[in-house]
Nucleic acid binder design. Structure first.
Length: 246
RNA sequence: GUUUCCUAC
């Protein structure tokens, strides 16, 4: 609660972790009890700063103080732990979560799947996880798919990524600009420039106009493929449109 | 009140 909570929130946003931590100590000293949210904010900002060990200390400290971690605490910590590449510890935390029967919602699953895709290259497993979720009747949103598609692309499974992408429209979910970018990027990396071009058309026709990056990705791909003529054409098309930023 | 997605050269 409290004004301390608010100040800590602000400090964390400004990446002033040191100061935020000092405030936390001060709270302790004065007998003010930080609540879960306060801890969560600090843990998360430590994690995004790569200070996972410190985040873990706070995590243990909060338990010591009788404050039980919730889904968000675990998410932040797990996500941070994965990012640092410590998947062993992250999986341990995941299991710990299961044992405590902390229930995940879609948002939380995203965090985990993202961590899985990036940290462990087990996008296939993430996919399985999604299927299970779907079978349970929860519907996935575009973000989930973006994460998955990106995961597939980054391990070179563009075919699977394409399947998922099509699966998207079958579900009447509109891909957003990021979805397209991820796909275009993935296709280009595999040298599938024609398909990337098709997608670009689709973007222009739909309501997701491509931005400068999207063009550049394709142009880059064309050049790598010795299609400098097409690249030039595309550059012109790009200039005519006066491409917009994200 | 706090946690998740893309960004080439």
């Amino acid at each position: 609660f409290s004004s301390y909570g608010k100040v800590i929130n602000v400090l964390s946003r400004e990446r002033e972790n040191g100061t935020a931590l000092m405030l936390l100590r001060e709270m302790d000293g004065k007998g003010c009890k930080p609540c879960v949210v306060t801890y969560n904010i600090i843990i998360d900002s430590l994690c995004t700063g790569g200070l996972v060990t410190e985040a873990r200390d706070i995590f243990l400290e909060m338990i010591g103080n009788g404050v039980s971690p919730d889904v968000i605490t675990y998410n932040s910590l797990i996500h941070g732990t994965f990012k640092v590449g410590n998947w062993k510890e992250a999986t341990r935390l995941l299991n710990e979560m299961k044992e405590k029967k902390i229930k995940l919602d879609l948002y939380n699953i995203n965090v985990l799947v993202d961590a899985l895709c990036k940290g462990m290259m087990v996008a296939e497993e993430a996919m399985v996880l999604f299927k299970v979720i779907e079978d349970c009747g929860s519907s996935l949103d575009v973000w989930n798919y973006n994460i998955l598609i990106h995961g597939m692309c980054s391990i070179g499974k563009v075919e699977t990524a394409k399947e998922i992408f099509h699966h998207l429209s079958a579900k009447k979910l509109r891909p957003n600009r990021r979805t397209y970018k991820i796909m275009v990027n993935g296709l280009c990396n595999q040298g599938l420039l024609n398909e990337a071009n098709d997608l670009l058309q689709e973007m222009e026709e739909g309501n997701c106009s491509p931005d400068g990056f999207t063009y550049n990705i394709i142009i880059q791909g064309l050049l790598r493929n010795n299609s400098s003529l097409k690249a030039k054409q595309l550059i012109h098309a790009m200039i005519e449109r006066g491409f917009s930023a994200d």
